[in-house]
């Protein structure tokens, strides 16, 4: 016999994500989900962003890591709340572990939560964790073909950071082709170019965060 089901497979994850979204909205907290390849510069981006904003905003971080606490340790120097989620080999974070991590923070005293997802351009894009925005981080050394190869992330992201632009002259990265592939995938994407290591070009990104936070806090 055939049974008609029509049930969303990721319902369990989605329901939790919706609960998180509602809860964060009530608490006026902005949560962003930072997604990029290993080595794209996600943790360095967080370091520079926290350094620039920590006087004005209360920041908390959820670090997703397959096995180690290396990224979390790098952020300890800022004396901000950090929760580490070790996924034990899993390639992405899911909303249930985010909900548990958020319970560790005093959200009444938090403005922005940064989630550093597991380094991977595929799987994290498939799972809603209740964030306000997905942020795609890519570096010029990875090549200009990444949006075309990983369309879902670049389609779903609200902002994209192109990192390590100081190295562009040493690579074959074609900026024109890269921009065009982003335009046809996601015309509404906010784009920022920077070198996190040199702390150059972060202004646009920081303004975007400030404006987005102001919208959330309304």
């Amino acid at each position: 016999m055939e049974i008609k089901v029509m049930k969303n497979i990721l319902n369990a994850n989605q329901n939790k994500a919706d609960e998180i979204k509602q809860h964060l909205k009530e608490k006026k907290v902005l949560m962003v989900n930072i997604i990029g390849s290993p080595g794209a510069g996600k943790t360095t981006l967080l370091e520079k962003t926290i350094e620039s904003l920590k006087e004005t905003y209360s920041i908390a971080v959820i670090e997703g890591d397959v096995a180690t606490d290396r990224d979390a340790r790098r952020l300890q120097k800022y004396d901000i709340p950090i929760v580490l989620i070790n996924t034990d080999g899993a390639c992405h974070l899911e909303s249930i572990s985010i909900q548990n991590a958020l319970a560790e923070f005093d959200l009444d005293k938090t403005d922005i939560v940064f989630v550093e997802n597991v380094g991977n351009l595929v799987c994290p894009a498939e799972f809603d964790i209740g964030e306000f925005a997905k942020i795609a981080v890519i570096s010029v050394t990875e090549g200009d073909d990444k949006p075309e190869k990983y369309p879902l992330l670049f389609r779903e992201a609200k902002a994209m950071i192109l990192n390590k632009v100081d190295l562009i002259e040493y690579t074959d990265f074609n900026k024109t082709e890269f921009d065009e592939s982003l335009r046809i995938l996601n015309g509404g994407l906010s784009k920022f170019e920077m070198s996190c290591r040199k702390n150059e070009g972060l202004e646009g990104w920081l303004d975007w965060l400030k404006n987005t936070h102001a919208e959330t806090a309304k």
């Binding site: 055939e2 049974i3 008609k4 089901v5 029509m6 049930k7 969303n8 497979i9 990721l10 389609r155 335009r183 046809i184 995938l185 996601n186 015309g187 509404g188």
Partner: peptide, 24 residues
């Protein structure tokens, strides 16, 4: 994701995001 008719990128996705069990 560019409108074939007017070139706009202001679009809504109607279908194509499904991940559904249809039947058993």
């Amino acid at each position: 994701y560019v409108c074939e008719q007017c070139g706009s990128t202001d679009l809504s996705v109607l279908e194509g995001q499904e991940l559904i069990i249809k039947n058993i």
